[in-house]
């Protein structure tokens, strides 16, 4: 564990908790993409299957359980909670997220390190995580006016990605044989998707204005 990875995990954790807290306390999921949340639930469910097969640390297992629990709770709130579900922007959140799942699955079947069930699903989760934010970014563009919490959620997620890249550079320099092309390329693609959002986020922050994305 290095400081970059810890900072990445903590911003990731904060992003999910900000979202869950927003939904739980103000009973609203306005501006939140259910499609993205469902994709994250699939990402965690397919990546963390190794909970049953390998043990790394208490920290690792605990965080996995938190991410699984929080992502499925958010999906549950948005789909089934009687007040929250009414605030969901159903008409705006129209991204065909299944069109992301299938190509990622095909890619994982073609490009992986080992052709085993767990390994292919693990690789699939990396590919899917890289693009899972897309429905949320599209929804932000459509609704344009973004409340602070949704903005902070995406900002924290982007921060998590940034810290993970620093973590990989650090590990590459300090650990022998630390080369993981699939993880790195998927992670880099994911981080680049945030670049546009970050640009407008900092603009609004600099000008002390409410965040608005161009149509």
């Amino acid at each position: 564990m290095n400081i970059f990875r810890l900072a990445g995990d903590m911003t990731h954790l904060a992003s999910v908790l900000v979202l869950l807290l927003k939904i739980h306390t103000i009973k609203s999921c306005a501006g939140v993409s259910l499609k993205t949340q469902e994709l994250y639930a699939i990402v965690f469910a397919t990546r963390y299957l190794d909970i049953f097969t390998s043990f790394y640390s208490i920290y690792n297992t605990l965080m996995k359980l938190i991410f699984l629990g929080s992502s499925f709770s958010i999906v549950w709130y948005m789909r089934y909670h009687k007040t929250v579900r009414r605030t969901y922007d159903r008409e705006q959140d129209t991204f065909r997220h299944w069109f992301l799942v299938l190509p990622c699955l095909l890619l994982a079947l073609l490009i992986h390190e080992k052709f085993t069930f767990l390994e292919v699903l693990w690789t699939f989760s990396l590919y899917l995580e890289a693009v899972a934010i897309l429905p949320q970014l599209v929804l932000l563009q459509r609704t344009r006016n973004i409340d602070n919490l949704t903005g902070q959620y995406v900002f924290l997620l982007g921060g998590y990605r940034g810290f993970y890249i620093l973590n990989w550079i650090y590990r590459y320099l300090t650990e022998p044989h630390f080369v993981h092309w699939i993880t790195w390329i998927a992670g880099l693609v994911q981080t680049l998707l945030y670049a546009d959002f970050f640009y407008y986020y900092f603009q609004s922050w600099k000008n002390n204005k409410k965040l608005q994305l161009p149509a």
Binding site: H12, N167, R171, E175, H177, F178, H180
Partner: peptide, 10 residues
């Protein structure tokens, strides 16, 4: 070397 050292990441 452990060739699956990324698996200890989240």
């Amino acid at each position: 070397p452990n060739d699956h050292s990324t698996k200890d990441e989240l």
